[in-house]
């Protein structure tokens, strides 16, 4: 291939045809109810780690997992406080996602497959 002097970066497009969402599949295996998330954002509204200091968003994490995107939300800050689950209108055990992310070995694969180019962000 001819060298044009720049490398193509990951396109700013979610290509559902090529999505690999293994982590999401793993989560759904354990928590099938997560499919019924409607992204209302109630979880993110009450999250104590969604503020000036940390930018964690439960809703965003769910969508990113579903689409097999790199996790941009600072989910590691999750303190498992259960408030997101308490307000979820779909009755989902939302915090279990973060607890699973913390334990999954699959997460390493996820981050490798979806490694973000260093020049973005």
């Amino acid at each position: 291939m001819k060298d044009f002097g720049f490398k193509p970066v990951r396109p700013n497009v979610i290509d559902l045809a090529t999505v690999q969402n293994r982590t999401w599949t793993d989560i759904l295996r354990l928590h099938p109810e997560m499919r019924s998330c409607i992204s209302c954002g109630a979880c993110a509204a009450v999250c104590p780690n969604n503020n000036e200091l940390t930018k964690m968003s439960v809703r965003r994490t769910i969508i990113e997992l579903r689409h097999g995107l790199p996790l941009t939300s600072e989910w590691q800050n999750c303190q498992m406080c259960n408030r997101c689950s308490l307000v979820c209108p779909k009755g989902l055990n939302t915090r279990s996602i973060f607890f699973r992310l913390n334990t999954f070995e699959a997460l390493n694969d996820h981050n490798q497959t979806n490694a973000e180019p260093t020049n973005r962000k």
Partner: peptide
């Protein structure tokens, strides 16, 4: 587009609300 999930009173008698602009 978001759901208000927490309401608290402010010192001046108003309501402080939290949501996410999803």
């Amino acid at each position: 587009r978001g759901r208000i999930s927490e309401v608290a009173p402010t010192n001046d008698g108003r309501l402080y609300i939290r949501a996410e602009d999803t």
